[in-house]
């Protein structure tokens, strides 16, 4: 049987070449060729249409960006608010995977949305990509910075910068015209969105990661039509592909971008210790803001407990990732043992 899969991203993007391409391969492998895939390109389904595509049966497995749907998926919205917490890509993807698989309200939200969750991925730690040198807090003051979400806006405002909402596709134009002075983003954006032509300076500090993703979201009717063994095989293939994606997005691609940046003469520097510490403190304080927002917006009464639970999982997986030396294969195994092996595939997502 052929499953229609859609990454919603161009071939070079980690969520296409390092998530959907390997998933297609692993799925055939895990099912001995019983399940194969047909890939639909961005001209058929872009990220903006993924929800409808999954809900109407146009695609069976698709890369859903849950933050587009805060009203329907409040638990992911909460994770999105906690962006500044992220440090290590493998740890963040594993933590959100365990959180979502084991939390019953998350599963209820996803069922109501008609979708089945098969894991997340994460970027590397964001950095300040700017046209002017930045090393301490004063340098940030007054800068207009592209913000990819609410936590980044809070961060910018806290440090006296102006957050600007610009879509990633327009970042290049906005920066080349001076509408923005820089971006809070993965260093990989230097290559992915050609910012390498404009940015002069990269400042490394604890700026969180982007991890509120649902990588290989499966349409509920498709999932229900699979046998229990096939569902388990889907989870196995997804688990392997998720780690590939985090490896690429969180480690390998940033390393390539860093090398290219140095070659292009861009300065890459650590923020001065006082600034880095202030940023780290803000990230912790911001967890309260995240909880408050979720409580207010979605009436999530136990928001503080949810945040605590999530932070606990982040710490757990940071330790594991550290222990295995951020090794992709080891992470695949540990996430399977700790999370997916405990799932009953006769009932999960049903």
């Amino acid at each position: 049987r052929d499953l229609r899969i859609a990454s919603g991203a161009p071939p070079a993007h980690p969520s296409n070449g390092y998530l959907y391409k390997p998933f297609a391969e692993y799925l055939a492998e895990e099912t001995n060729g019983e399940l194969t895939t047909i890939e639909l390109g961005t001209e058929v389904v872009g990220l903006g249409q993924m929800k409808d595509a999954l809900q109407t049966g146009l695609v069976d497995v698709g890369n859903l960006l849950p933050l587009y749907f805060p009203a329907e998926l409040p638990n992911f919205a909460l994770a999105g608010e906690l962006a500044l917490t992220g440090k290590d890509a493998h740890a963040m993807s594993a933590a959100l995977t365990e959180y979502t698989v084991t939390c019953s309200s998350c599963q209820d939200e996803l069922s109501a949305f008609g979708m089945v969750y098969l894991g997340s991925g994460s970027s590397d730690q964001y950095a300040l990509l700017t046209k002017t040198p930045v090393s301490n807090a004063e340098d940030v003051e007054g800068l207009r910075l592209r913000s990819g979400g609410a936590p980044y806006s809070r961060w910018a405002e806290h440090f006296g910068a102006t957050p600007v909402s610009v879509s990633v596709l327009e970042t290049f134009e906005a920066m080349s015209q001076g509408t923005i002075d820089g971006s809070m983003a993965s260093i990989g954006d230097l290559l992915a969105f050609r910012l390498i032509e404009l940015v002069e300076n990269v400042t490394l500090l604890p700026l969180g990661t982007y991890f509120a993703t649902s990588n290989l979201t499966t349409a509920a009717p498709t999932w229900a039509s699979l046998s229990v063994e096939q569902r388990e095989a889907m989870a196995r293939a997804a688990n392997r592909a998720n780690a590939d994606m985090a490896q690429r997005w969180g480690y390998d691609f940033p390393a390539i971008a860093e090398k290219a940046a140095l070659e292009a003469g861009i300065t890459i520097q650590e923020a001065d210790p006082a600034f880095a510490e202030a940023a780290a403190e803000f990230a912790i304080a911001d967890q309260q803001a995240a909880a408050a927002i979720s409580a207010e917006r979605f009436g999530m009464e136990d928001a503080s407990e949810r945040v605590e639970e999530f932070i606990r999982l982040v710490e757990k997986w940071e330790a594991i990732s550290e222990e295995v030396g951020h090794d992709r294969d080891a992470i695949v195994e540990r996430v399977w043992d700790e999370v997916w092996s405990k799932v009953d595939f006769a009932t999960y997502g049903m």
Binding site: L67, P70, A71, S147, A150, S153, P163, S165, I293, R297
Partner: peptide
């Protein structure tokens, strides 16, 4: 029914 909204720099 859902009350669809977009989040702009933390505003709904």
């Amino acid at each position: 029914a859902i009350g669809t909204f977009v989040d702009v720099l933390g505003h709904k």
